[in-house]
């Protein structure tokens, strides 16, 4: 085998290998964007559903894409005020729902009632005393929803599914259905 042939063989092999690596990363990207992916949930706003120190959850991308989410689902939404961040909240109302919410739960019982506009959703954290949600920035457009959280995978003690609805009497769940 001449030197040239040997080199041609090596180059061909290297191209084949790098193409299969590229294919692998593309497959990961497609799975992450269109089927499901993982996310790290952190912070006080979703207590007691998620703890303070951070949990890794599985995220379902299909149901948000086809509009299969409803009140009670935990979703990941791109923050309307800082577009580089994503936040975890629970959907309280879909378009057309009438929502009554407590404006400032730490200081008063004053409530306000609004109707969620077309194409928007109303999201709130489960820990209404320490969360920055639709009560601050208003209803969010549906297009900002990134995926539905459906399974906790880490830490192992918390492994399991996430209920579709919070318990009756949960302070975060205040929908007036008409």
């Amino acid at each position: 085998m001449s030197l040239f042939q040997r080199w041609a063989y090596i180059v061909k092999e290297a191209l084949d290998k790098s193409f299969s690596v590229a294919k692998f990363f593309c497959a990961i990207h497609v799975t992450n964007t269109y089927l499901f992916s993982t996310a790290m949930v952190q912070g006080p706003s979703m207590l007691p559903t998620f703890n303070l120190n951070g949990e890794i959850v599985l995220l379902d991308r299909i149901s948000t894409r086809y509009g299969k989410v409803g009140p009670g689902d935990v979703i990941i939404v791109r923050s309307p005020e800082t577009p580089r961040k994503v936040v975890t909240k629970r959907i309280i109302g879909m378009e057309g729902d009438t929502i009554t919410y407590i404006v400032d739960p730490t200081n008063s019982d004053r409530t306000e009632t609004i109707v969620v506009p077309k194409g928007h959703v109303w999201v709130e954290g489960d820990n209404i005393y320490n969360t920055y949600d639709s009560r601050n920035f208003g209803p969010v457009p549906y297009g900002l929803l990134q995926g539905k959280v459906f399974w906790k995978i880490w830490p192992t003690s918390a492994f399991g599914s996430i209920g579709r609805r919070p318990q009756i009497g949960d302070p975060a769940f205040k929908v007036v259905e008409q």
Binding site: G67, R84, P117, P141, G143, L145
Partner: peptide, 19 residues
């Protein structure tokens, strides 16, 4: 990547009233 846009850019976005 950085969500950096400036005045006069033509952008494609999903309709806020119908995703």
């Amino acid at each position: 990547d950085k969500y950096k846009f400036s005045h006069g850019d033509v952008v494609i976005f999903s309709d806020p009233t119908n995703y």
